[in-house]
Each structure stands twice: as structure tokens, then as C-alpha cells.
Write a protein that binds this DNA or RNA. Sequence first.
DNA 1: CTGAAAGCGCTAACAC
DNA 2: GTGTTAGCGCTTTCAG
Lengths: 332, 332
Amino acid sequence: MKRATIYSIAEELGVHPSTVSRAFSRPELVKASVRERIMATADRLGYAPNRTARGLATGRTGLIGLLVPDITNPFFPPLVRAIERAARDREAGVLLVDADARGAAEPGLIRQLRSEVDGLVVASPRAPSAKLKDAVSGMPTVVLNRTVRGLPSVVCDNGTALREAAEQLRRDGHRRFALLRGPASSWAARRRAQAVHQWAASADGVEVVELGPFEAQFEDARSAGPDIVASGATAVLAFDDLMACGVVAGLAEQGVAVPDDVSVLGCDDVLLARTMTPALSTVTAPLQELGEHAVAMLVAVASGERVRDERVEGVLTLRGTTAPVKGAAASG
Amino acid sequence: MKRATIYSIAEELGVHPSTVSRAFSRPELVKASVRERIMATADRLGYAPNRTARGLATGRTGLIGLLVPDITNPFFPPLVRAIERAARDREAGVLLVDADARGAAEPGLIRQLRSEVDGLVVASPRAPSAKLKDAVSGMPTVVLNRTVRGLPSVVCDNGTALREAAEQLRRDGHRRFALLRGPASSWAARRRAQAVHQWAASADGVEVVELGPFEAQFEDARSAGPDIVASGATAVLAFDDLMACGVVAGLAEQGVAVPDDVSVLGCDDVLLARTMTPALSTVTAPLQELGEHAVAMLVAVASGERVRDERVEGVLTLRGTTAPVKGAAASG
DNA sequence: CTGAAAGCGCTAACAC
DNA sequence: GTGTTAGCGCTTTCAG
């Protein structure tokens, strides 16, 4: 038994197929009584509009393409969920593509995606702006957590929270900070480092020594343990939670206790942050909002509206890996 | 400037559009010389077949639907990646739907997905078989990590590795085991519990006390700390890594050290397992294979072949949370 | 091997 | 409000 079409239901009811079509796509154009009969037999027959046919007629697919650089990075799953949810709320589907952490492949993947979707949400922290722009050209696109001249973006600003954290640590007696930088080509890594340096420049008597850049991996951060100890820092600001977690492990191997000897701050508040012991102090990104904004903006862009870049704020979440410097009374 | 079509390129070359169509869909039917000219101007014009149009004509979408119960569960991202990759290798796209941990919503989501894809890969550990079967009926489907009568499935069998782990612990002097059961409705939870009980029944002088069922969450497992202590177990077998991680935290709160006082085993080998300190002993699932099998099977099913259920084996990965019973020499 | 023609299921003018 | 009529871009008989 084949799937029902507007024709089959039109025939049953003695109306014209286009009336059935309207009942679904522009219900307000159809007299209520007719519309109801249509709907009734439609779901008796299990009819649902054929998206492909609709797509061919309208030129839209009802799909948004989502590119993530590495879905196994715990930052992304909640974001993917938020986007998928937001898309579903708008009756759109999400075509997911994972770049498998191979940044260089991203533009190519985008090009493949393009032809199958109405718009793109792209999290591509590493691809050069020019290539990225070229790959998405002509397709409604929103970029996530980075800015690209000429492309709408929604970013999470962690700078404020990061500075707040640093300031808090300073009040707690910390004077020497280690900054573990994320990947050299990562936009977010640049921004976070900037925020910290900027804070340091205006803060009294603090020093920050920058380590890295590192790949944002547990192992890399872990093996930085000795360097951190050597730096003499009492507080370390890691690029992200995974690195922070590695730092804690690496310090433990050096016999230094967190937070008793050294404080550690992460960023992103991924699942990991809550499951480690002690729980990680970090900056929490409002991913739900971020995803919602991204999809909303994409819809706006796709319908030709002008949009303004969106920014959400990370909020500081102090947990168990930060503490006052040992033996030091808090000082302002 | 609009996208090129078979017409635009046919016109340029003075051939019929259907020849162009053939050049792409059934190249062997077109004379080589003609085909080459077609291909040449095709990519000069940046032509790519319109998937929507092709879909309408063929009745296929080139998409596979992937339902996951909770993408923020760290078990799924690597699996999603594997499936997406396997799909891409076959020129198919993945339409992702996340059930947001609301098991009851799964059948409904599946029904929505159905109409937009050529086939379904469904990870739905909790939905009742009947509802699941009903929701996918008539659509090529492969279910992941559970079996449903009449539906092809690919599962990861952890039973062997789990028994092996238990046996190893027994040799290390453990006699009293706590089994933390996963969600009551979860197929995997049932299987894992079975495997352990079955082993226990045939092992000499061991006792397993079952705790739970628990939701597979960190917090739930953590709060089971006192019960575990009360059970007198020296080894705990947790449903999954997240719970195992919670157990370690919960035990720490009770002043019991892992692995010195109590050994803990997880299951799945998610990222978390490698980042905790000490690193978690667990059962590693070959997700790459699992994903590859799933889409290969789906393709087979979709083209009408009969397929046999596929099974991959989890392998035991002993790390830092398991150790011989304190003060006890290993015993056979 | 290639051209011709029909049709996939729906939408979108345009009439009535 | 609803029927009419063309397509959307491709595949797929069927002829030749």
C-alpha cells in the first residue's frame, strides 16, 4: 500500500488536489469546514506532505546543515542538542556532519553539505576565515563561536567571566597565573587568552605566564604538569575543561594538590567538570540559548532579513578546584 | 545566477537532458566521449545533481535517520561520528534526532523522521519493543544495542568481557560484589546484569548484591555510596562509566579509597573513563565497527537483502580502579 | 547509445 | 474560496 498523496485524499473528498495542498501549506486560505474534512481523511489515511516534492516545488529542503569540528569533544553534544531542538521547533531537520577533528577538511565538507540544505550552522573554530567564507558563499550561514567578517555569528563571550574569575583568584591571594593556551588556530583560544592578558595588564602585581599552545586534549595538558610547577604559578587558567582536567591529573602526578597547592579553572562546563573530584571551577556557557539564537538567526538570514551578531555570556561557576592561596589571608 | 541543471548543460552541448542525467546516474550507459564532455562542462558550471529532484523521481532521499536517546550521554558521540562517517562513505547524509532523554517521546520522533529518510538507525534502549516496531514499520531499520524481534540489530556484547573482569577480580581475592543496575527499562542494563549473575552462579564462593535500578547518572550513583559501603562489597560493577565515576566519588565521600579499599569497574569506555584519576577500568566498545555495521546493514535491508543480526564484542580494559583485595594474596 | 515523453508530489500564480 | 495550469529537476520507460 502506497503512501497517500494530495491526490488520493482529494479524490476521496471530491475536491481539487490544490485545495488539499493549501490545507497544509496555507490553511488560512481554505474554508474551515473543508479544511477539517481534509485533515480528517488525511490522518485517517496517514497522509503527511512529501517533503521532497514540496522541496522541489519550493526550492527549499526543510533541512539545516550543522557542521561540528569534533562531536566527541564534550562541548558539542549539548550544543548539537540545542540546535536540533531549535530546528525541530521550526519543523526543520538537522543534517549533521562531523569533521572528525580534521580542520582542513571542513571547507570541503561544507561544500558538500551546501547543496542539500537551506542553510548552514557552522562551528569551525580553525578553518581560515577566507576559506570558510568561500565555502559557504551564497548560502545562508551562521557561524558559531567565532567571528568572520561578513558572516553572521553567535558567540559565547567568556571574557567577562574569565576576568571575574581571575580577579577573584587575585583577591584570594594568587599573584602568579599560568595560562594554558588552546590550539593556535582556534578563535576561542585567542579570545580567552586575550581576555586574561588584558585583565592582567590592568591588575596590580599579577603575572601571567603563558604555556602552550596546546591541542585541547587531556593528555597534552596532563603532560604540562612539570612546566606548570616550574612556572611557580599558584593558579592555572586552562583553555577548556578537558585541559583543566588534564592539568589536575598532571599536577597530581607532580605531587601538587588541587586546590590546596594550586587552583585550576576550566572553561565551558562540560559534563566532565561536574564528575571530576573535586568538581571543576569553570565558566558555564548557556548552550541552550546559543543554539536557539543560531537557528533563529539562520531562519532570519534565510528569509532575507538583516541580522546583528548575537552574543551570549558565559557565567562563572566556582566549584572545588579554586581556593585561596595556602596560608594567605584574602587580600583586596 | 541560478544553479546549473541538466538542461543548462545539455543546451551548451547540444545533447538531450536525459543524456546528461544518465551521465551522472548511470554513466555506463553513455558513450565515453560524450560523458567526458558532459562532465567537463558540468564542473565548469559547478553543476551537481539536485538531490531533491532526484529524490522526487526515485523515491529515495539519500538520507538516513539517526535517533539517539540522549546525545549528551558520552557513549553516543563517538557512535554518532562512526555512523555519520559510514553514511558519508556511501554518499548518504545523516538526519539526527535527539530524544533528549525522554524515552516516551521516541516512537513519536521516529514517526516524524520516517517520512524524510530512506532508512532508520535507532538507538532506543527504553521504548517498549511493540511501540518501537510499530513506529518503524515498513521502513528499513536497524536497531542499535538491543534486540527487537523481527528487526535487524547490531549490538555490542559486553557479557564476555564483564565475566572476564569479574573472574579476574575473583582471582584477586574479591568475593563480595555490588552490582549497580542501570535503568529498569534498559535492554543493555538487563543484559549486563544477566551476564554478571550468570557468572556468579557458576563461580565459587562469590556473592553479588544488586543495587538499583538507577538512572544512569553520576549523581544517582554517587549517592549510592553509603549503600555500597553497607553491602560490604569489595568490588563494584557499575552499569556504565558515568555511574562508575559516580561510585568513585560517592565512595570517596565515605572515606573509602579506590582501588585500595574497593575496586570499581565501569562499562563503555567513554572519554570520562580516561580522564578520571585513577583511570577507570572498564569494557571498551568498538564503536567504529558498530557504526559501520549498522549502516552497512541498513543499506542491505533497504535494498531488500536479508541480513543477520550483527554482534561486536566489548573488550576488557583494566586501568586504575581495580586491584587485588587489600592484604589478600591472589587466589585461584 | 541517445532522444522523446511521462511523471514523481507538491506549490504557486492565475482565473473563476 | 477553489479549480486550473504549469512547472520544480531529475529518472525512466520506450522508441529509434
